[in-house]
Amino acid sequence: MKQQRAFQRNLLVSWSGVIVVLVLWQLANTLRLVNPSVFPGPLQILDTALNRFPAADVLDHARISVQRVLFGFLIGGGLGMVTGILAGWYRLFGKLIWGPIEILRPVPPLAWIPIALMWFGLGEQSKVFIISLGAFFPVVTNTYKGMISVDPMLFRAAQSIGLRGPRLLAKIAVPAALPDIAVGIRVGWSLSFGSLVAAEVLAANRGLGYMIMYGREVGEVEVIVYGILLIGLLNLITDYLIFNLLFRRQLRWYFG
C-alpha cells in the first residue's frame, strides 16, 4: 500500500516535465503567442495524426523505413562483426586491414552519399549502402577492441581444460568480447538510424523521412512535426528492444 503510493508519486514526478512542456506549448498556441501554422501545438499535431493520414499509410511508411534500416544494419553490422572477430583472432590479418579501416573511419556515413549515388544510382541500393556504413565502423572497431582486450588468463584457463582452436574462439573469445560488441551494435544502430533519416530526407519516395519532406513540400508544418515524432518514437522503441530486451538478458553477467 505504502509502496504503491510511492510508486504512483514517482510516476507523477517522472511525467511532470513532459506535462509541463506540453501544456506550455499548447498555451503558447491557444493564446496566439506564436503563429500556429509555423509552430503547431500538440492538439493540432494530434489532430493531424488522427485525421490527416490513414493509419495504414503511416504504418506502411514506418515499415519501409524499418526494413531499410534493418537490412542495411544487418549487412554492415554483420560484416563489421565478422571482420572484427577475424581481425582480433588472426593478429596479422588484424594489423594488415587496420590501415584502411582507420583511414576510412573518420568519414561520416553521410559523406558517402554523393559517391553512393554515383555508384548505385538513386535507388534502394545506395540507401542500404549508406546505412550499412553507419553500422559497420562502430561495430568493427568495438568488436576488435573487445577481442584484443580479452583477459589472457581466460585463455590459459580454457586451454588447461583442453579447449583449443575454433572452440576457444567460439566459447571463450567471442563471449568475453560480447559486452564491447554490444556497445558497438548500439552505437551502430543509432548511426544507421540517423543515416536512414538523412538518406530518406535527401532522396526517397516512401518511408518516414519522405513523409517529412512531403509535409515540407505541401507547407504543412504539423505533418513535419508528426513525422519527426514518429521517427523519434521508432528510434526509442528499437533501441529499447535491442538494448534492454536482448543485451540485458544475454549479458546479465556483465551488466548485473
Binding site: F193, A198, M213, R216, I228, I231, L233
Partner: peptide
C-alpha cells in the same frame, strides 16, 4: 532519440 537530421525540413 529524435534524429537530428529529421529536423532539417
Amino acid at each position: 532519440s529524435v534524429a537530428t537530421l529529421s529536423l532539417l525540413p
